[in-house]
Design a protein around this nucleic acid. Structure first.
Length: 487
RNA sequence: GGCGAGUUGGCGGAGUGGUGACGCAGCGGAUUGCAAAUCCGUGUACAUGAGUUCGAUUCUCAUACUCGCCUCCA
């Protein structure tokens, strides 16, 4: 039994799909004019977990997930004007980036990822229908939705039209009957993208695409509609107005899920504050996608999440421990066939309880501590972490000295193949450290050894020493350049 | 101004009408050249005031504060 918090009712409700053979979910996707920033990644990862959970519960082929690309928008036009590039070129490139970056976070691709520009005729048809039904009107080359024609307008976000008689914040176009009326279609000129329509050459307003696409791909009633909390008003309110007026026999979306916003080091992420960064920025800094995913899931989706360096380091540490356990020599472990690993019931229940990913990660921590590999692997997979990938990503180099009555020498082990670094340098350093250490232990003078050790630490390599071995583990902040300087 | 969310120990972060998770840090111990890592053990919290209740951190109301959305950025 999955329970989800429905924004529509402001309550946690038992989730009952309309058709359990085809569970349908729509999530608002990005406007494609630039790299996805970290805030964009939160809903992607949150709804990816929901998608995985639904697939787990109802069956892989029995969930349809749609996430759109908004590729008609004034921000895109501005980008085109600014760079002199073709709009299609910009949107194609950005969509490619988006896929790359979200793939790196371990997010499954939706079943459908429609582009707004592929849906112009259905949007025009829906607008015509709305005019015909008396919910929209043409004025000054625009087509506007008449919010007063829909009684439930504002129900989702808990706003009343009277309270919003704005005009205070934004200048209201004088062709609007009501300041809250929003654009369904607007005229295009010059280099602006446009299509012929009954109202002249123009382009759609922002909200209509989601109504047209969800109708086509999911029908007039579907199960879940998700997105960031910022979209609750006006975007989702407007979607509801359009869809419910155009298809009065349908429910549109039954469960509305909204994720809270993301902050960075306690402050809102914004360009003006200079704490704005993209997923690609982090990946390029060497932060594995799994670490980003882990941090994003460590806070419940309906709470504001604060992105901090500390959380990133802790997440990395935990993932490394997991990789160490999973990647260690199978001969040292009791036999487990991880191919058949399934998530424990308590783990599924945590996720089924309105996506309590924080508790889910706590459980993962428990399986790790108790070395319950079967449970661990099953849980990780459901949450979108792949054991093999973790072992690779967090590969380590272990330089082990062997020194006992039978053998004496150096044994170098590496785990995984994903380590993007110069193995030889690491090996050399490990041997050197071992040699210096041996000398130091004989002479009693540890200064040279301490110097090398702190240099390694500075370069982002964790140094672990025990009687038997020395381990060098390049971390997330590993800096190859500093390592070169040590030679 | 409108709307909404939140306030849990040093930090992060779940959860519950009645024995107050868990992680990190701290402290004590084992181990150690010293550390680290690892293992064992361990303390401190539920914004304030009032109400409901046998009993509230958990429900209700008020107050304070924080944050977000409504505005380019989700």
């Amino acid at each position: 039994m999955i329970k989800l918090h429905n924004t529509k009712t402001r309550r946690k409700e038992a989730f009952v799909p309309i058709d359990d053979q085809n569970v349908r979910m729509y999530v608002c996707g990005p406007t494609v004019y630039d790299r996805a920033h970290l805030g964009n990644a939160r809903p992607v990862v949150v709804f990816d977990v929901l998608y995985r959970l639904l697939r787990h519960v109802y069956g892989e082929g029995r969930v349809t997930y749609v996430r759109n690309f908004t590729d008609v928008d004034d921000k895109i036009n501005a980008k085109a004007a600014e760079t002199g590039r073709d709009i299609r070129e910009i949107t194609d490139e950005t969509i490619g980036w988006y896929h790359e970056d979200m793939d790196a976070l371990g997010a499954l691709r939706p079943d459908h990822a429609p582009r707004a520009t592929e849906y112009i005729p259905p949007m025009v048809a829906m607008i015509l229908d709305l005019i015909e039904k008396g919910h929209a009107y043409e004025a000054d080359g625009h087509v506007l939705f008449d919010v007063n024609s829909y009684d439930a307008y504002g129900a989702l976000s808990g706003r009343k039209l009277e309270d919003m008689r704005a005009g205070e914040r934004v200048e209201v176009a004088d062709y609007k009957r009501d300041p809250m009326d929003f654009v369904l279609w607007k005229p295009s000129s010059g280099k602006q993208p446009g299509w012929e329509s009954p109202w002249g050459y123009g382009r759609p307003g922002w909200h209509i695409e989601c109504s047209a696409m969800s109708l086509d791909l999911l029908g007039e009633s579907f199960d879940i509609h998700g997105g960031g909390l910022d979209l609750q008003f006006p975007h989702h309110e407007n979607e509801i107005a359009q869809s419910c007026c155009a298809n009065p026999t349908g429910d549109f979306a039954r469960y509305w899920l909204h994720n809270e916003m993301l902050q960075v080091e306690g402050k809102k992420m914004s360009k003006s504050l200079g704490n704005f960064f993209t997923v690609r920025d982090l990946l390029d800094q060497g932060v594995p996608g799994e670490v980003i995913r882990f941090v994003l899931l460590s806070t419940h989706y309906r709470s504001p999440m604060d992105w901090t360096d500390k959380k990133m380091r802790e997440a990395e540490k935990t993932l490394r421990k997991i990789a160490e356990l999973l990647g260690s020599d199978p001969l040292t472990k009791p036999w487990v066939d991880l191919r058949y690993a399934t998530p424990p019931q308590e783990f599924i229940e945590a996720l089924a309880n309105d996506l309590n990913t924080s508790l889910a990660l706590t459980l993962i921590g428990k399986y790790l501590k108790n070395r319950q590999e079967f449970e661990l692997v099953g849980a990780l997979r459901l949450l979108g972490f792949f054991p093999e990938a973790l072992v690779q990503t967090f590969a380590e180099v272990r330089i082990q000295t062997v020194d006992n009555s039978l053998v004496s020498g150096v044994n170098i082990q590496t785990r995984g193949a994903g380590l993007k670094t110069d193995m030889n340098s690491l090996n050399d350093l490990g041997k050197r450290l071992q040699k210096i250490r041996k000398e130091a232990m004989e002479s009693g003078n540890f200064s040279e050894m301490d110097a090398l050790k702190s240099a390694l630490t500075d370069a982002g390599i964790e140094v672990r020493m025990s009687k038997e071995s020395i381990e060098l583990i390049p971390g997330v902040s590993f800096d190859l350049a500093k390592l070169e300087a040590l030679k």
